[in-house]
Design a protein around this nucleic acid. Structure first.
Length: 152
DNA sequence: GCCAACGTTGGC
DNA sequence: GCCAACGTTGGC
C-alpha cells in the first residue's frame, strides 16, 4: 500500500467537486507531465490512499483523503481535439498520457496548510516541501502520512 | 546533444 | 499580478 498527494486547483476541481461526483469518483485527467504520468501509470495501485491538496488558491494545503479505485489507463481526453489538454502526439494506438480514478474518502476536520506543514521538522524532505516542486502527483512516505494525520 | 527561448506552475 | 523554478521545444 502506497501513499500519495495530488494537487488540484479548488476553482477548477476541488474536493467539493469530487464529493459531488457520482460515486464520489472521478478520473484524474489532464496531467501532462512525464514524472506524474509514470507514477499514475506504473505505481499507483488500487486501494492506495491520496492526500487531496488545494493549490494555487488563498489557502494552499491538504483538505481531504481519497483512494485509488482504478489503476492507470489511457487519458482519453488527450485524443479529443476539443479538450483543453488535447495532445495530437497521443493516440489510442500509442497513448502518451495516463490517469487513475480516485474516490473521495473523507474531508479532514480542517485544512492542514502548506505554511503549517513547512513548520514541522519531522516533515523535512517531503516532496511537497521541496523548493520549486511543481509535480501534481507525488509520493508521500508512510511516516509523513501518519505524522500529518496526527496534526489534524 | 547543447542551450536559449518560451510556457507553465504555484506561492506569495 | 509578480516572479522563481522548472519542463519543453526547436534551431544549430
Amino acid at each position: 500500500m502506497n501513499y500519495w498527494l495530488m494537487k488540484s486547483e479548488p476553482d477548477v476541481f476541488g474536493i467539493d467537486h469530487l464529493m459531488a461526483m457520482p460515486k464520489k469518483t472521478e478520473h484524474w485527467d489532464g496531467v501532462r507531465n512525464y514524472q506524474a504520468r509514470n507514477m499514475m501509470r506504473d505505481q499507483m495501485k488500487k486501494g492506495d490512499l491520496v492526500f487531496f491538496y488545494h493549490s494555487n488558491c488563498k489557502e494552499p494545503g491538504i483538505v481531504g483523503i481519497a483512494k485509488v479505485v482504478k489503476e492507470g489507463y489511457p487519458d482519453h481526453t488527450a485524443f479529443n481535439p476539443e479538450a483543453k489538454y488535447y495532445d495530437p502526439k497521443s493516440d489510442p494506438e500509442n497513448p502518451r498520457w495516463y490517469m487513475v480514478d480516485i474516490q473521495h474518502k473523507r474531508k479532514l476536520k480542517r485544512t492542514i496548510t502548506l505554511q503549517e506543514l513547512k513548520q514541522h521538522p519531522q516533515l523535512e524532505g517531503m516532496a511537497l516541501l521541496r523548493k520549486g516542486n511543481r509535480l501534481s502527483v507525488m509520493p508521500v512516505d508512510k511516516n509523513h502520512w501518519d505524522y500529518i494525520l496526527g496534526m489534524e
